[in-house]
Structure formats: structure tokens, C-alpha cells
């Protein structure tokens, strides 16, 4: 982890958690009949997108929810946003139900939805002003528009903005209510590296100011850069959860090099490591430093071509979760 190790600040009456999910499930009707008299759809078949998720996000913490497409990230986050009710389990935002007690929750959260949802014919300034007027304790709208570098585009219709500009406007509106909890659903998907960096900076600044963040992403780098804790979702459940260090702790490190012609592999004594050799020798180990020292001792003065030694990466863990469970 590179930055933002934030210690929790003020406690909220005993609980440091701004968000808790307990046994949360969410089902969607896949087939439904329409009743004209009541104007309601009566579901006949269901698909369970979220299958028992437990999560908590502490005050001042940036929590990243990772997952492949269709893992259930957005379905979960929408429940936190109060856009739907879970079919089972409970969700508490600041200790409140985000649907039934929306009035007590909404002014403390800022949301970036997966799709922005802007009326295309309004200008940036009109949208910012209108949104500003819907907020309980808004920050000056022009400041936020400036913070996302859209001041020069203030009078441009939203329909004419680029994807990156639209996303930046999205972030500006989410921050405008000075939220204690930011909920960001794939905020940087489809953005160029520069826009992504500038959005990361805004998010980091928010965390430094004491806000908590729930972020979904399928960019592993984004989670590595920003998150205090990470959960990897797959097929509707949380497959791994913890700090980056905790998540990669159980996964082995890896050493590889081109098989040297003048040395015998039988002389290589690396207890606890597994060795596979063809043209390239690969060792996986839970004791990277010790194994590497033994490899270097074994090699002596021989140059090991293509020598590469690396700790377990989030990518490795992520891919193994995605692979193994798909085989079921």
C-alpha cells in the first residue's frame, strides 16, 4: 500500500463502523408477469446476484470492493445506496436503514453511480446548481466544478462532454454535499490515466479529511493505490477480505530464471519451496527472502538470466479466485 493509512477519528456513539452489511442477499426477477390492474409485476423466476455478503466499513476507511464483471459488486452497492431492498439480511449506514430511514442517511452520503444519469440538455453549471440546491449542507458548487477542472466547460451541455469530463462532474456532485461516506461505483472505468489520477487525488483528499469511502473497481491497481481494506467478490459472495498484506499473505511468492546450463538443479536446496523446471525454472515459496538467498548461493558466480523475484500480488490472488471458483 502506498498512502492513506488513516487512523479512525471521532467515534460515532460507540461504533466505528459507518457501514455494515450482515448476511445480505439480493435477488432479481428474471421472469415476471404483469398485472394491469395493480400496475405491478409479479415475479415468477429469480436470479440471486448477491448470496450472503457480510462487510463493514470503518470511519475514515477506504474500502475497495473488487470483482469480475457480474460478481455482484453493483448489486451490493446499490443496496447501500438505498436504491433497493435486500431480499435477506440487513444493511446499516450510520446505523440506519438506507431505504426506510433515507431522510436520516442521504445528507451524509455522496454517491457516484455506475452510469452518471445526467439530463443531456442541461449545462454543467445548470446541473451543478440544481444538484447544489437539493443538498442539506452543500459546499459552493463553483468550487467543486473548479476542483474537477470543469470551470472552462461550465456552459457546455452535458451531452457534449467527453466520458472523462462527465465522470469528473459526477465526482464533483458526489462531493458537493460534504459527505461522511462516499459510495463510488467504478468511478474511473473508461478514463484516461490522467483523469484517473486526478480522481484518485480527489478521493484521497476526502479520506484525509476524515470521510469513509466504499469503492468498487475492476482495476486492481486502483485498489492497491487507494484502499485500506479490500474485499474480492465473486459469484455473489466475498471470496477474500482484508488489508492488501493480509490478502496476499497466504499466496506464495515467486522466483524465476532461465535454466543455467552449467548448474545442476539437484544441488539446489530450497526447503519449503516447490520447483518446476523446463527452459525456465520457477519456484513458489512462502519464504521469499530465504529461498532467494539459497538460490543465489547455489548460483554462485553464474549469471542467472531473466532472474525475477516477486511477492504475491493482488492480481495473482484475484485471478486464482476467479479461476478456481469458475471450475465448480
Amino acid at each position: 500500500m502506498t498512502s492513506t493509512a488513516i487512523t479512525p477519528v471521532a467515534q460515532d456513539h460507540g461504533s466505528a463502523d459507518v457501514l455494515t452489511l450482515t448476511g445480505v442477499r439480493r435477488s432479481y426477477p428474471t421472469r415476471s408477469r404483469f398485472n394491469v390492474l395493480t400496475g405491478r409485476r409479479v415475479p415468477v423466476e429469480w436470479f440471486e446476484a448477491v448470496r450472503g455478503v457480510d462487510l463493514r466499513v470503518g470511519r475514515g476507511e477506504l474500502f475497495a470492493l473488487l470483482g469480475t464483471n457480474g460478481a455482484g459488486k453493483t448489486s451490493t452497492v446499490e443496496l447501500v445506496e438505498g436504491l433497493g431492498r435486500p431480499s435477506a439480511g440487513t444493511i446499516r449506514v450510520f446505523g440506519r436503514d438506507p431505504v426506510a430511514e433515507r431522510r436520516l442517511v442521504r445528507h451524509r452520503t455522496g454517491v457516484v453511480l455506475q452510469a452518471s444519469g445526467f439530463p443531456p440538455s442541461l449545462t454543467v453549471a445548470e446541473m451543478a446548481r440544481a444538484w447544489h440546491a437539493t443538498l442539506t449542507r452543500p459546499l459552493p458548487w463553483a468550487e467543486l466544478v473548479d476542483a474537477v477542472a470543469l470551470t472552462g466547460r461550465a456552459d457546455v451541455e452535458i451531452a457534449k462532454l467527453s466520458g472523462g469530463e462527465r465522470r469528473r462532474l459526477d465526482i464533483a456532485l458526489a462531493l458537493m454535499g460534504d459527505p461522511e461516506l462516499l459510495i463510488l461505483d467504478e468511478p474511473t472505468t473508461g478514463l484516461d490515466p490522467e483523469s484517473r489520477r486526478s480522481i484518485w487525488d480527489l478521493i484521497k483528499a476526502r479520506v484525509v479529511a476524515g470521510s469513509s469511502v466504499l469503492l468498487t473497481t475492476h482495476y486492481l491497481e486502483e485498489a492497491e493505490q487507494l484502499a485500506d481494506r479490500i474485499a474480492i467478490m465473486h459469484e455473489g459472495v466475498v471470496a477474500a477480505e482484508g488489508t492488501l498484506a493480509e490478502i496476499v499473505a497466504d499466496a506464495p511468492a515467486r522466483i524465476s530464471f532461465v535454466r543455467p546450463s552449467g548448474l545442476s538443479l539437484t544441488d539446489l536446496d530450497v526447503p519449503g519451496a516447490s520447483v518446476t523446471a523446463s527452459d525456465t525454472v520457477t519456484l513458489t515459496t512462502h519464504a521469499l527472502q530465504d529461498t532467494l538467498r539459497r538460490v543465489l548461493t547455489w548460483a554462485g558466480d553464474t549469471q542467472l538470466a531473466g532472474l525475477d523475484a516477486r511477492s504475491a500480488s493482488l492480481e495473482q490472488v484475484f485471478l486464482s479466485i476467479a479461476d478456481t471458483q469458475e471450475l465448480r
Binding site: V9, A10, H107, R129, A130, W131, H132, A133, T134, L135, T136, R137, P138, L139, A147, L175, D178, E180, L202, A205, R206, V208, A209, G210, S211
Partner: peptide, 21 residues
């Protein structure tokens, strides 16, 4: 950016202001 610890700005939001916007 703003600090959460700053004294709360007055709540200017109201149903009427929101609906009007």
C-alpha cells in the same frame, strides 16, 4: 478540500428549496 472537523455549516437545504431546484 474541506475538513469534517470544521464547525458544521448551517443546513440551508429544505424540501421547498430542493423541489424548487
Amino acid at each position: 478540500m474541506t475538513a469534517l472537523t470544521a464547525p458544521a455549516r448551517p443546513a440551508i437545504g429544505s424540501g421547498r428549496r430542493r423541489f424548487g431546484a
